[in-house]
Design a protein around this nucleic acid. Structure first.
Length: 851
RNA sequence: GCCCGGGUGGCGGAACUGGUAGACGCAAGGGACUUAAAAUCCCUCGGCUUUUAGCUGUGCGGGUUCGAUUCCCGCCCCGGGUACCA
């Protein structure tokens, strides 16, 4: 055995062995318990960053742990390869998105391999493979047949000078990130998935996903946003039309004194009176210039305009002015809100601003509110007033009674409304899955026949960033023959939202080479659902909700008998690092800073706050350098030791140093004890020292097993192993207790192996085992080895620690109490006081209450 | 704005169900070994004080409790998401 720990040599050796022996290649085996472990696959941005290292290190610990426990572990990896950055790179550097993406994948694959992650690489695929996206097109066609996808118009961010649609992140303060021109809202016909048809089921199932973090479920419930209320008809005066509103506060209907509509409401213009029309048009145009995100998040001042029309409050008969208001969104409810200034704060402010009357209809218990003296809306409960026959009812009862009354009169109906909107999947972009639809002058919208799939994304395009998607100008792609009438047809040029690819990739991994269908049903039903899914908290709602939706769609298309895709979910925090900037050169990479100064100009560098690592702010650490200097095992260990998975992780180079030192310490612990381990005969094994070491060994097995399994407290698991290593170093009775020493060392190697597999495989072999770690299996602790003879109990007086007593481990309450009251320092504190009460927590503490 | 988290020494974090606050590691200081350095090993390490001990301390202000980092109420700050970044 070599004296020095040589990470590079060991890692290369074992990575080669794993590859040559297909160690992590799996297939379905009905006789073995399966375990499907999945980490969110990466976008191939160029190089892996510490967020990936962390995510995939976490996953690999679980994969290796479960394998050691004897499970049949599926642990695949692939690439979420369509998306905007590839197009941005094409615009900036002229590289074709396909080439850019393939090169990035090649580099990132080699980086992941150097980390020693235990993937079944035979299952790898990229979503930009036609062999993948063709099946996505097929699923779309099946959804189309079933009426789960449809077209409607909706608004997009539009930059007129660039002639292109902008993503929300490309809009900065309402301006285009490239040309800095004002962004406007443009109406386009777009494809949607009917996720709202699944709103109730998606919501109901959140109450059964026991393996998901509660905050994620809460976020999904709030996102789906189920509310029960009424749809109420308000007749427009002097016309035969009605405005339908949705409200959850029908108990305040008698207090409705105006109506507010979204500026995009289809009736907005027709309601404008002749003399107000120009003002209304100007207002609508103004709101269109406000970007969607900003409007929804209340960045803009709340304002509105009177249309000149009135509608009738169906219960009071009062005439209500109809306004357009920028804070009313067409996407929610009916796009029209009955406004009750006295009981809704937004309406209160709006009414005050525009001089609209207020009418109090709910009086809080014991309160004496009047509409004239109110300074804010009363949104709490109370009894109805000014509401005719409903006066005196508490408002919750009134909700029910008024809903019944509206239904009986035919002017309203009870309704459940979801905040969740249908999923718009059209993107006016090149680098995505083509939507398999044709438009024929004679036949209209025609789905591409299944046997003509895939609709291949053409490669011969130039991407300029101007004039929209190059597909709209690609003649041979654009024009084809209508399968119905044989006439000329034009292809859909929109591509899918990339969330569509990530909504079913976990199913494809079960049979990634299947050539006749999206997946092999038997394989998929063997592996699914995913037993443990691991990824960033930023995906808590959208990706995870879409994936759940898709799984249910596949089920209803009779393709897969699975209701929920992910049994257990772990959401990890961000990896952060401080930012650095130079007054001359802007953001700087860490390696561009020398002794606090910019390496380019020598100016003093300003340190910024800690932020999520991102290429744009250059606060990134390249794992390659880390692996080069310390090895993959150290990089893995540090990313796991520095913080628990769900918390944000702040980068700190010195912590890495410590982890590297620890691995050296483990290496030396084996190296230096090799001689002593050679003694196999048991000499005086019952010695007290040996029993103490064994107790620590078995306590560590229990602790590490509990920390890994289900709780993912890797940082404390590693701490516990460090403590055992410290104990081994301090263990003096090596010659007397060689088998206790061997047991302790081998336990360290086994427990540490999911974290630092290369080092541990090597040490396991050096310790004389030929079978490898997976064959060795995960150790079990012996309950008998854990028993203690004595325990130290804390004694408090009035809740403050005043002493400690050592008693036999199973001491009863009376013994504890007596020992506590006899403790010297405790006596000092209860002198001249009366003992009122003594609280005994067995095995922990005694608290003497005295006054 | 709305929804979801988080805030503990010089730093990362620990304390699992209300029961010793600061495990483990980093940094720092002191010492040993060495011609020297690296590596390694040992000791100290929240603050304050009258230092075998006491007071104080988990973002801030209250509350519940024998006892609160943990539970409740009200604030402040930071992070994530907010439907076209993935």
């Amino acid at each position: 055995m070599q004296e020095r720990y040589d990470a590079a040599a060991i890692e290369e050796k074992w990575q080669r062995q794993w590859e040559e022996r297909d160690t992590f290649v799996v297939r379905e085996d009905p006789d073995r318990q399966k375990y499907y472990l999945l980490e969110m696959f990466p976008y191939p941005s160029g190089r892996i960053h510490m967020g990936h290292v962390r995510n995939y290190s976490i996953g690999d610990v679980v994969a290796r742990f479960k394998r050691m426990q004897g499970l049949n572990v599926l642990h695949p990896m692939g690439w979420d390869a369509f998306g905007m950055p590839a197009e941005n790179a094409a615009i900036q550097h002229g590289t074709h998105p396909a080439r850019w993406t393939r090169e990035n994948i090649a580099h990132m694959r080699s980086q992941l391999k150097k980390m020693g992650f235990s993937y079944d690489w035979t299952r790898e695929f990229a979503t930009c493979d036609a062999e993948y996206y063709r099946w996505e097109q097929l699923i779309f066609l099946k959804m189309y047949e079933k009426g789960l996808t449809y077209k409607k118009s909706s608004f997009v961010n539009w930059c007129e000078p660039c002639q292109t649609v902008l993503a929300n992140e490309q809009v900065e303060d309402g301006r285009c990130w490239r040309c800095d021109c004002e962004v406007e809202q443009k109406e386009l016909e777009q494809w949607f998935f009917k996720i709202t048809a699944y709103a109730q089921e998606l919501l109901d199932e959140t109450f059964h996903l026991k393996g998901w973090p509660e905050p994620v479920l809460t976020m999904q419930r709030n996102w789906i946003g189920c509310s029960t209320g009424c749809e109420i008809d308000f007749a427009v005066e002097g016309s035969g039309t009605v405005i339908k509103v949705f409200t959850t506060r029908q108990d305040t209907l008698y207090g409705a004194t105006f109506m507010s509509l979204a500026p995009e409401h289809p009736m907005a213009l027709e309601l404008a009176s002749a003399e107000r029309r120009r003002g209304v048009e100007a207002f609508i145009a103004k709101v269109r210039r406000q970007d969607k995100t900003g409007r929804a998040s209340g960045d803009y001042e709340k304002e509105g305009i009177f249309t000149g029309s009135y509608c009738t409050n169906p219960v009071t008969g009062d005439s209500l002015p109809v306004y357009l208001a920028n804070f009313v969104l067409m996407d929610y409810g009916t796009g029209a809100v009955m406004a009750v200034p006295t009981h809704d704060q937004r309406d209160f402010e709006f009414a005050s601003r525009y001089g609209i009357p207020k009418r109090l209809v709910i009086q809080p218990d014991g309160g004496v509110l009047t509409s004239e003296t109110m300074t804010e809306a009363w949104i709490g409960s109370g009894r109805l007033v000014n509401s005719e026959s409903f006066d005196g009812l508490d408002n919750e009862t009134a909700k029910e009674k008024i809903a019944d009354y509206l239904e009986s009169r035919g002017i309203g109906r009870k309704r459940v409304n979801f905040r969740l909107r249908d999923w718009g999947v059209s993107r006016q972009r090149y680098w995505g899955t083509p939507i398999p639809i044709l438009y024929c002058d004679g036949c209209g919208t025609v789905p591409v026949p299944e046997q003509q799939l895939p609709v291949l994304l053409p490669q011969d395009v130039r991407i300029s960033g101007e004039g929209g998607s190059p597909l709209t100008q690609h003649e041979s792609f654009l024009y084809t023959v209508c399968p119905n009438c044989g006439g000329r047809a034009r292809r859909e040029t929109d591509t899918f939202d990339t969330f569509v690819e990530s909504s079913w990739y976990f199913v494809r991994f079960a049979s990634p080479r299947e050539h006749n269908a999206p997946f092999d049903r038997v394989a998929a039903e063997y592996w699914l659902p995913v037993d443990q899914y691991i990824g960033g908290i930023e995906h808590a709602v959208m990706h995870l909700l879409y994936a759940r939706f898709f799984t249910k769609v596949l089920r209803d298309l009779d393709m897969l008998a699975v209701d929920e895709p992910f049994r257990n979910l772990l959401t990890q925090g961000m990896v952060c690092m401080e930012t650095r900037s130079c007054p001359e050169h802007g953001w700087l990479f860490p390696e561009e800073v020398e002794e606090g100064c910019c390496s380019k100009c020598g100016r003093k560098v300003t340190l910024g706050r800690n932020e999520k690592m991102s290429k744009s702010k250059k606060n990134v650490v390249d794992p390659d350098q880390l692996i080069g200097r310390y090895g993959a095992d150290t990089a893995r260990l540090f990313s796991l030791f520095a913080a628990p998975p769900e918390k944000d992780l702040e980068w700190n180079e010195q912590g890495v140093e410590g982890c590297y030192r620890f691995l050296n310490r483990v290496w030396r612990a084996v190296y230096e004890n090799m001689q002593d381990l050679a003694f196999t005969e048991t000499v005086n094994e019952d010695a007290f020292a040996g029993r103490v070491l064994r107790r620590h060994t078995h306590r560590t097995i229990r602790k590490v097993t509990e920390d890994i399994d289900g709780r993912f407290h890797f940082n404390t698991a590693i701490s516990a192993i460090m403590e055992l290593v410290n104990t081994i170093y301090a263990f003096e009775a090596k010659k007397q207790c060689p088998s206790a020493l061997r047991e302790a060392l081998e336990t360290v190697v086994l427990l540490l192996s999911p974290f630092v597999p290369h080092l541990c495989e090597e040490l396991w072999q050096l310790l004389g085992h030929s079978g490898g770690l997976e064959q060795a299996g995960w150790p079990n602790y012996e309950a008998a080895a854990l028993t203690e003879d004595e325990k130290t109990i804390v004694v408090q007086v009035n809740g403050k620690v005043r002493g400690k007593v050592t008693v036999v481990a199973d001491a009863d309450q009376e013994t504890l109490k007596a020992a506590a009251l006899a403790e010297e320092n405790v006596l000092r504190f209860i002198k001249n006081k009366t003992v009122r009460k003594v609280i005994v927590v067995p095995g922990r503490l005694v608290n003497v209450v005295a006054s």
